[in-house]
């Protein structure tokens, strides 16, 4: 399947907040609580449609423990979007957001869209962080915010897709230089001006992009 754009995402946040589960829910539409803990970085990918254009999301899921921070940092480079995840049932994962955010801002490109996610919203009885607090943090730092549940799939689609919409808008506004892959955006193969000769049929799956 050929796409108009490819967006690179990175998922960050403390260990055990549900980063891998969010990814799996988004890519495979299933919840697997006994998923092996992530070492290094893992990948997921899925196609979505925005404005009638196929967009491929390539998602990098990272290990959360602090010891691995210095390695994980190298993956920020070239990401167009980041999902910064905390666990609403564990206050400390919320408290660490500032460090994560500083880290992300420092090592990514300045236009990276960051979505703040309060995960495990299904565990209302164990909630330690109010929704308003997440909201306030997001407003203060200019992030988009959502509470999700990887278990029930609530808001998971929205979290990934809204981030993509924001990136897409930035492209339309000309904020992102789409020719610079360091921004985490790639133009799909059939949309690239340098690749004119393609097998017949590859054009059919999506309309050609009227990219800025």
């Amino acid at each position: 399947m050929s796409y108009a754009y490819l967006f690179k995402y990175i998922i960050i946040g403390d260990t055990g907040v549900g980063k891998s589960c969010l990814l799996l829910q988004f890519t495979d539409k299933r919840f697997q609580p006994v998923h092996d803990l992530t070492i290094g970085v893992e990948f997921g990918a899925r196609m979505i449609t925005i404005d009638n254009k196929l967009i491929k999301l390539q998602i990098w899921d990272t290990a959360g423990q602090e010891a691995f921070r210095s390695i994980t940092r190298s993956y920020y480079r070239g990401a167009a979007g980041a999902l910064l995840v905390y666990d609403i049932t564990r206050r400390e994962t919320f408290n660490h957001l500032t460090t994560w955010l500083e880290d992300a801002r420092q090592h990514s490109n300045s236009n990276m869209v960051i979505m703040l996610i309060g995960n495990k919203s299904d565990l209302e009885s164990r909630r330690e962080v109010k929704k308003e607090e997440g909201d306030a943090f997001a407003r203060e730092h200019g992030l988009i915010f959502m509470e999700t549940s990887a278990r029930t799939a609530a808001n998971v689609e929205e979290a990934f897709i809204n981030t993509a919409k924001e990136i897409y808008e930035k492209i339309q506004e000309g904020v992102f230089d789409i020719n610079n892959e360091a921004n985490g955006i790639k133009i799909g193969p059939q949309h690239s001006p340098s690749n004119a000769s393609l097998p017949p049929g590859s054009q059919s799956s999506s309309p050609s992009s009227g990219c800025c």
Partner: peptide, 13 residues
């Protein structure tokens, strides 16, 4: 707390 989390996601298959 980290160990508690991780033993539940080590080689469960």
């Amino acid at each position: 707390s980290l160990i508690e989390k991780d033993v539940n996601r080590t080689d469960r298959t």
